[in-house]
Design a protein around this nucleic acid. Structure first.
Length: 559
RNA sequence: GCCCUCGUAGCUCAGUGGAUAGAGCACCGGUUUCCUAAACCGGGUGUCGCAGGUUCGAUUCCUGCCGAGGGCACCA
């Protein structure tokens, strides 16, 4: 990497200049900055600004001393002292050509790192199977999956896990709702409970159960029938959920049921561990976790006075279970309503003897779904909701995912279904995909005209000399670092923005530079630049779970 | 009341301890004998919510205040 070479060069210069500056040891490692302006060089460093006070000389003087000591290197064209004391570094284009050759060589692997043995689990979606996934789950699914992809690209081995509570009160109310519809269908008198699920899909479930299992289920005893209805309904809803997720480009490795924890006695065991660690105590007939010792504002019940564990009690056991499976990192993707859980889950990890930093809850802000500016209502129990399937039907997986991944997790976003549906300019996903398709079209044209792509070693990449070309090359060269940084920040939106930026650089190049021309040498160089860009655009889109089409239909003018 | 996130261009949002803070949309104008015009080029707008503090340097870090959204159950 050019950055490493430049830092090494600057470190060397610093060592040479150190005696004159009156500093012998403890030399700082110079940091590179990315200047905003072209005439501030390709890279810059503020190392002299930092040293000036210590040395007791003006920053510019320090900078000049370092600049004078920089050994010559083939990749460094010149170095300038600028502004209050920056050193601006101007590189030769050689490293940009290296980057393009690397793209050609690595292909799909460009920007990625080989697995290094570190294992991460990403737990996301985790909606209770009481109904289809809704709009409310869309951002969670998009972020969780994109994070998993990003981690995989940076060396992690990742498991995607879906956790659900298959035995709580919600599921009972769901079971009772299915039961009521089932009984109605078999001509009996029954009512969906007021606090049950009133959506039309419940009747769909009941009808399917009736078709497959027969009316005999109605004759079961009350308790048995409820359990059966709960199980039958849940199994069907889980199949719906899985199908929706597949359509959304998400595949889970593990669907984890809360009941497994209880069945294996893990909840009692976890509570005992907390007690042994002095982090749990009994009061008011319940067992409490001393979460206030870990930054929570009050202690939390883990076992209720009626002997049943709380949701959080199960979380503690689940934490133990996850760690026992050997993960180095546990990521949770949570909506804003869970922010209060962050301190206590990390606290529980610490109390249980784990590294709290290995537990990473990622909280994202809500999405407001709109339709032409009007809020779309949500709420599963009332049945007044829009299924995620319907969103995908209307706007497509690519547009949905890209739009949801375009914003920082910390930003509350407005998702206007009608706007995203439009295949128009205010829809950045098509801008990026169009770039990819355009390149495919160029390559196809070259092939039609019998222009063969020679090995890149034979191409004279120094012919790529216009600003549009070097800007595009630079865009390609920056991708590996971008991916690493986005993964480190757990920020998929950085990838979305980078894909837009790269597409913009390509479109500019396309407008200014004819690729397939009479100049055979230049054609080779530009074809490689185009082919490399196509590859990198596809790689970035893949990290978002968005497809990279070979061709795109022209939009209807009357839309 | 306490906690979390946010407050940047008319709108939607990026971004950063540095040198003149960006993109898209919207608005106006231009570009197609030529590889996809879903494109490109030009035109301008900012007390970076307010006030202090730390720093050589703060929009960025810290504190307080104001405003917006969300959360503060032995529920799930």
């Amino acid at each position: 990497m050019i950055e490493d070479r430049l830092v090494d060069l600057l470190s060397e210069a610093l060592r040479i200049a150190a005696p004159d500056l009156g500093i012998d040891d403890d030399l700082p490692r110079p940091e590179l900055l990315a200047p905003r302006r072209r005439d501030h060089g390709d890279f810059a460093t503020n190392v002299a600004l930092g040293l000036a006070k210590r040395v007791g000389k003006p920053p510019r003087e320090v900078a000049q001393a370092i600049a004078d000591a920089v050994p010559s290197a083939p990749f460094l064209e010149k170095i300038e002292v600028a502004g209050p004391g920056f050193l601006n570094l101007f590189t030769t284009d050689e490293w940009l050509h290296d980057a393009l050759r690397e793209v050609a060589d690595a292909g799909e692997a460009y920007g990625r790192v080989d697995p290094d043995g570190r294992r991460a689990q990403v737990e996301f979606v985790s909606a209770n199977p009481t109904g289809p996934l809704t709009l409310g789950h869309a951002r969670n699914a998009a972020i969780g999956d994109a994070l998993a992809r990003l981690l995989e690209a940076t060396g992690w081995t990742v498991e995607r896990e879906y956790y659900f509570n298959d035995a709580g009160g919600q599921m009972d109310r769901f079971g009772a709702s299915v039961e009521a519809r089932f009984l109605q269908l078999t001509g009996r008198d029954a009512q969906v409970p007021d606090d049950g699920y009133h959506g039309a899909y419940v009747e769909v479930l009941a009808r399917d159960i009736l078709d497959i299992e027969g009316p005999g289920l109605a004759d079961l005893g009350d308790g048995e029938r409820l359990l059966r209805m709960r199980a039958e309904g849940m199994a069907r809803v889980l199949r719906w959920i899985e199908a929706t997720l597949e359509r959304f480009g998400v595949t889970f490795d593990v669907y984890f049921r809360e009941s497994e924890l209880a069945a294996k006695g893990e909840i009692e065991a976890a509570v005992e561990r907390l007690r042994d660690a002095g982090a749990a105590y009994d009061a008011e007939g319940a067992t409490w976790f001393r979460s206030t010792a870990y930054g929570d504002d009050k202690d939390r019940v883990v076992v209720r006075s009626n002997g049943l564990h709380t949701y959080f009690g199960a979380d503690c056991a689940y934490l133990v279970d996850k760690f026992s499976r050997g993960f180095d990192r546990l990521l949770y993707v949570w909506g804003a309503d869970h922010h209060g859980d962050v301190a206590r889950v990390k606290g529980a990890a610490q109390a249980l003897g784990y590294d709290p930093d290995a537990v990473e809850p990622l909280v994202y802000q809500w999405v407001s779904f709109l339709r032409d500016g009007e809020p779309v209502p949500m709420g599963k129990r009332s049945g007044n909701f829009i299924a995620l399937d319907q969103l995908l039907e209307e706007v497509g997986t690519d547009a949905a995912r890209f739009t949801l991944l375009l914003y920082s997790n910390d930003a509350a976003i407005n998702f206007d279904i009608e706007a995203v549906k439009r295949r128009s300019m205010d829809n950045p996903v098509y801008y990026v995909q169009y770039g990819h398709a355009r390149i495919a079209s160029i390559l196809a044209k070259a092939a039609r005209e019998g222009v063969m792509l020679d090995p890149i070693e034979n191409a004279d990449l120094t012919l790529l000399a216009t600003d549009a070309e070097t800007d595009l090359l630079r865009g390609l060269a920056e991708v590996p670092e971008l991916i690493a940084y986005a993964a480190e920040l757990r920020a998929p939106h950085r990838v979305a923005h980078a894909s837009q930026d790269l597409a913009a650089r390509f479109h500019r190049f396309y407008s200014g530079c004819r690729v397939v021309s009479d100049d055979a040498e230049l054609t080779q160089a530009r074809l490689w630049l185009a082919a490399g860009t196509k590859q990198v655009l596809a790689n970035l889109l893949a990290l978002l779970g968005v497809s990279a089409p070979e061709s795109m239909e022209r939009a209807d003018d009357d839309d």
